[in-house]
């Protein structure tokens, strides 16, 4: 094998890079208060994503109407392009409470569980490559352009975790309207 392979021939998104990213994201989640456990999806050998079980109050640092949630992370790195990823928050139906603990009386519609998250891919490019999306009870989706800058995957996940309390508060306010 020659020593002067052009840079484009390196891994750049192939198995080891994708797997290493997910393992790093898994470690990052493991250091976040409120992440109860994580698992690789479909498994630790050829993972394409991560699923984290969340104690909402501990993660968000505030009392929160839905005490349990799931964070799903999917990451598909690409060489020379923006990585494709999704960091999605799903609240769990069986534990969602009807009344916010701050005394404000609110109910989420029957059968609806709150779902939102950050996505980056090649679509919806008017908003830019990345957006935050909110999924509403009527099936509609609102998307807001987001820019992460030239940073590594663990940085992106960390920014999202830092912004999650604000995003959820704003989304719930909109749901309330």
């Amino acid at each position: 094998m020659s020593d002067d392979d052009p840079p484009v021939a390196f891994d750049g998104g192939r198995p080891r890079t994708r797997k290493r990213i997910l393992y790093q994201l898994n470690d990052r989640l493991g250091h976040e208060p409120g992440v109860e456990y994580t698992r690789f999806d479909p498994g630790r050998t050829a993972p394409t994503g991560l699923v984290a079980s969340i104690d909402s109050g501990r993660l968000l640092g505030v009392e929160y109407p839905a005490p349990a949630a799931t964070l799903e992370v999917r990451w598909s790195p690409r060489s020379g392009w923006k990585d494709r990823f999704a960091i999605q928050w799903y609240e769990r139906a069986d534990t969602a409470s009807d009344t916010a603990v701050d005394g404000r009386d609110r109910t989420l519609p029957e059968g609806y569980t709150l779902s939102c998250g950050w996505h980056q891919d090649d679509h919806l490019n008017d908003l830019g490559p990345a957006h935050f999306q909110e999924e509403y009870p009527d099936g509609s989706v609102e998307r807001y352009g987001v820019s992460f800058g030239d940073v590594n995957p663990v940085w992106i996940l960390s920014e999202c975790l830092a912004n999650l309390p604000n995003r959820l508060r704003t989304f719930r306010e909109r749901l309330d309207e």
Binding site: V146, S147, W155, S158, A162, N163, N166, R167
Partner: peptide, 12 residues
Amino acid sequence: MMTPDPPAVWSD
């Protein structure tokens, strides 16, 4: 909406 300061990224 991104936080002005860099987030906590790497563990201690």
